[in-house]
Every structure is written in structure tokens, then in C-alpha cells.
């Protein structure tokens, strides 16, 4: 640990006060809302809660949410691995500009992210006339929801993998190639096993965002009940109809998802830290000679 000796550190009462203030702040802003979701959801009793979830519209919203995530995540993984491979293993012009562009969707308001697809594929959009002539619906339909989700989850996997692969260096892959491995063999047997935890971490975060996205999806979905309603949109509709129990029952499913995300994330972080520690221990006699090449 990096803390100085107790003889230098803050007096006990300062430590106690600071800790207490921080915990009260986090308690009010984080713990209380989390508890409130479940209390509100169960406010009318368990049967009412289960009824709300068994509602066909709720079920179709859950199914659509899962479907969108199932489509978006593999695409994100493929992109993340490809981008991290190019950026962490090769030198080329405009690399730092590319990294900035990958981060760009994080900086764009979700509403703007939805709007851009309306401008492209909406009835008055650039491709609107052509699409309606061929009877293809993207906006106010599932493809639009998928596109908006892809936009907002775009950076997650790549952002995790780029620094990880940069830190690992390219020696292992070079060894594999020098031993005669083909490109795919190297990818499956060396690269992917080395980055599996980082990849999983990125997927966990991307999944939470994909299933929970509201703003971007709300702009492109059209809120057609039973068809283009994802679970977060379903929450909104019920809440606006003053169906408090229904809204919070649906919200509690998403809150559970958030809890699972936090737990999975903590476990993966723990695994990654342990692996890093093991790696450092195994390298320490040589003074960490295999650390990243600048």
C-alpha cells in the first residue's frame, strides 16, 4: 500500500470524519436509490410484482432488449479485437486521431446519437425515399434500435483492449509466428487467451449499456408497444401512465442486471489483478525485462 506510516498520516478523528462524510454522500446518492427501486417494485406485494412482469408487453420488451444485446455484443467484440490489434501491434500515421475517434461516441449525447440515424434512415432522411420505395423499415423498427445501440456501445470493448494489449507487448505473438503459426492460429491460441479477461470486462460494460440505453433508443424506436419497446422504454411508458408498480417492477429487472454487472465486473477485476500480480512475480528476477516496449 502506498499510505505513509501512521506517524505521518492524518489524525484518527480526521480519518473518521472524512470516511463518514464520504459514506453518507455515497449512501444518499447510490445506496438509497438502489434500495428504493426494489422497495417501490414490491410496494403492492409480490403477486402484483409478478403480474407486472408476466404482462405480455413486459415480456416482449425483455425479449427485445436481450435480442438487441445479442446482436450488438458480437459486433462490438469483433470490432474491439480488430481495432486493438491494429493499434497495439502496429505503428501508423493518424493512430492517436483514430483512438480519439473511437472515444467519440462517449462524448455524443444519446439523443444526438439517435437523431443521426433518423437523419439517415427516417422518412425525410438521406436514404428515406429509397428505403420506403423498397419497403424497408429501419427507423421505428428493430434495425434502428440495433444501430443506435451499436453507436452508444461502440467504444467499450476497444477501450479495454487497447491499453491491455499495449501493456502485454508483442513478443508472444512474434514467438508464435516464428514457430510457424498461421494468423488465425496465433489469434485463437495466443492473443485471445491472453486478453480474455479484458475482453470479458469490456463485454460486461457494453452489455450493461446496451440493455440499459434509453435516450438514443427512445429517439429511433417510435415506442410501438409489443414491437419496438425495449425494457427501459417500457419503464418510461408505465411510469408516465402512473403505473408505479409496473414501472418499478420492470425497473427492478434492470436494477438486478446492474447488480449482476457490478458483481461480474468486480470478479473480473479481481482476476485481472491476480493475473497481473502473477505476471509481475514471474518476471521480477529479471527486473521485469518484458515490460512494454515504448
Amino acid at each position: 500500500m502506498s499510505s505513509p506510516r501512521p506517524s505521518i498520516a492524518e489524525p484518527r478523528w480526521v480519518r473518521f470524519t472524512l470516511t463518514a462524510v464520504a459514506l453518507v454522500f455515497l449512501g444518499f446518492f447510490l445506496a438509497l436509490p438502489l434500495v428504493a427501486v426494489f422497495v417501490e417494485a414490491l410496494a403492492a406485494g409480490i403477486p402484483a410484482y409478478l403480474d407486472a412482469l408476466a404482462d405480455p408487453e413486459a415480456r416482449s420488451a425483455i425479449w427485445l432488449t436481450v435480442l438487441v444485446a445479442l446482436i450488438a455484443l458480437p459486433l462490438n467484440v469483433a470490432f474491439g479485437v480488430a481495432a486493438a490489434w491494429a493499434i497495439a501491434r502496429f505503428e501508423f500515421r493518424g493512430k492517436s486521431a483514430l483512438i480519439t475517434l473511437i472515444d467519440l461516441p462517449f462524448a455524443v449525447s444519446p439523443v444526438v446519437a439517435g437523431l443521426v440515424f433518423v437523419l439517415l434512415f427516417g422518412s425525410q432522411g438521406l436514404f428515406g425515399a429509397w428505403l420506403s420505395a423498397h419497403d424497408i423499415r429501419i427507423i421505428f423498427a428493430v434495425p434502428g434500435i440495433v444501430l443506435a445501440t451499436l453507436f452508444v456501445t461502440f467504444p467499450f470493448v476497444a477501450r479495454e483492449l487497447i491499453p491491455l494489449m499495449q501493456a502485454q507487448g508483442r513478443e508472444e505473438e512474434e514467438a508464435a509466428v516464428s514457430l510457424g503459426a498461421s494468423g488465425w492460429q496465433m489469434l485463437w491460441r495466443v492473443t485471445l487467451p491472453n486478453i480474455k479477461w479484458g475482453l470479458l470486462y469490456g463485454v460486461i460494460l457494453a452489455n450493461a449499456r446496451a440493455m440499459g440505453e434509453f435516450g438514443a433508443v427512445s429517439v429511433v424506436s417510435g415506442h410501438i408497444r409489443g414491437e419496438t419497446n425495449t425494457l427501459p422504454l417500457h419503464v418510461e411508458i408505465l411510469y408516465n401512465e402512473y403505473n408505479q408498480v409496473g414501472a418499478f417492477a420492470a425497473a427492478s429487472v434492470l436494477a438486478l442486471l446492474a447488480l449482476v454487472t457490478l458483481i461480474a465486473k468486480t470478479i473480473v477485476e479481481w482476476r485481472m489483478r491476480r493475473e497481473t500480480a502473477m505476471l509481475e512475480a514471474s518476471l521480477s528476477p529479471e527486473g521485469g525485462a518484458a515490460s512494454p516496449a515504448a
Partner: peptide
């Protein structure tokens, strides 16, 4: 671990709860 809750909790849920 709880600090990351706002990253994990969908914004609509946060909105109606707050």
C-alpha cells in the same frame, strides 16, 4: 464496487427512482 452503480444502472431507472 458500488461506486460504479451509475455506469451499470440504466438511466431511466435512475430517473424514475430519483
Amino acid at each position: 464496487a458500488l461506486v460504479d452503480l451509475p455506469f451499470a444502472l440504466p438511466t431511466a431507472v435512475a430517473g424514475i427512482t430519483l
